[in-house]
């Protein structure tokens, strides 16, 4: 019983982490029909920037609790700098091209950003760590559940995931700009004809998506050692989550993250040797049963 509880807790924590990373990807795909491989680079940029900001913070001997503000600042800065830069500087010239070409454009961007990160931060693994080894991860302390102790930081992840999901749902369903956005998702040309500024919608969507990737990176930074190539590791995971849920679907991303998190936690506790491909098995099974993922809208038929 206690092991089952551990599986659930581990699964939820991992699912929250996955959701934060995947939600920006599904948002961008939903609106712009771009499967953004550079999402992995934005995640990595968020993590590296978080390290730099936190190091500066700790360097001034400020209170460790304030490092959370630095994580948030890093995510916002990366989102506001790279989102507009990529969208205005590159992607807007590519709209209307084939989906596959757009994937490859972001792949090219991913390759370029990988080396940019290397040139800026070097290849040494970096740690978010204060002068006495304190990190945002450990500073909050632990709680006990089913005989195991978990850092409260995990609850921060869960909280951020829930808040992000709730905020996006609210914006999409309850606000004017959200409704406009849904119109753009449904039919870009018609929306433009009705006077919606599609360019602006894309601009805002991509910036928000980039920021969400950076939030994922910034929140991950204190729990890992930040290394080059970390973006490549998460991008395929995020793809899997988004595809399982149904591309472009917000509740789909949440459910996809939840399923992957649970399956992974269960396999680690009961059958550790299956962990390596659990995610892809889930993805294959889901796609075989529901070819377009769990949440997929009806498609307009073209003749």
């Amino acid at each position: 019983m206690s092991q089952l509880l551990a599986v659930v807790i581990d699964g939820i924590v991992y699912a929250s982490w996955l959701f934060i990373i995947a939600v920006g990807l599904t948002l961008i795909y939903g609106v712009m029909k771009i499967l953004n491989i550079a999402h992995g680079s934005l995640y990595a940029l968020g993590a590296f920037t978080a390290v730099s900001f936190c190091t500066a913070w700790f360097g001034h001997n400020y209170a460790a609790a304030g490092s959370f503000a630095m994580l948030a600042a890093a995510a916002i800065v990366v989102g506001l700098v790279f989102g507009p830069l990529i969208e205005r500087g590159l992607l807007r010239f590519m709209y209307g091209k084939d989906e596959v070409v757009l994937v490859l454009v972001t792949y090219a961007l991913f390759l370029i950003l990988e080396d940019v990160i290397k040139l800026v931060w070097g290849v040494d693994p970096l740690l978010v760590q204060g002068p006495n080894g304190e990190t945002p991860y450990s500073v909050l302390g632990n709680f006990e559940a089913s005989g195991l102790s978990y850092p409260y930081y995990n609850l921060v992840l869960v909280g951020v995931a829930v808040a992000t999901g709730a905020a996006l749902t609210w914006v999409l369903t309850r606000t004017r700009s959200g409704k406009l956005l849904i119109a753009v998702i449904h039919d870009r040309e018609m929306s433009a004809a009705m006077g919606i500024d599609v360019g602006r919608t894309y601009f805002v969507t991509f910036t928000v998506g980039a920021m969400l990737a950076a939030v994922g990176g910034a929140l991950t930074a204190p729990t890992v050692s930040v290394v080059t190539g970390m973006g490549a590791e998460v991008i395929v995971m995020a793809f899997a989550v988004v595809v399982i849920g149904g591309l472009g679907s917000l509740p789909g991303a949440a459910l996809g993250a939840f399923i992957v998190g649970m399956v992974r936690a269960a396999s680690i506790h009961y059958k550790p040797e299956l962990e390596l491909f659990s995610v892809y098995l889930v993805m294959a099974v889901v796609l075989i049963v529901r070819p377009k993922g769990l949440f997929s809208g009806a498609e307009v038929r073209k003749i």
Binding site: L35, E99, V100, V236, F239, A240, V243, L247, E273, L276, F277, Y280, L281, M283, A284, L287, I288, P291, K292, G293
Partner: peptide, 28 residues
């Protein structure tokens, strides 16, 4: 038999899933 039913990004992704399962099997 399975993949011929799929199009677009879903074809791409299901192919990816199969290739990664083979990767997992070989690594094991």
């Amino acid at each position: 038999l399975l993949l011929a039913r799929y199009r677009d990004i879903f074809f791409a992704m299901l192919s990816l899933a199969f290739s990664m399962i083979l990767y997992g099997l070989l690594v094991k």
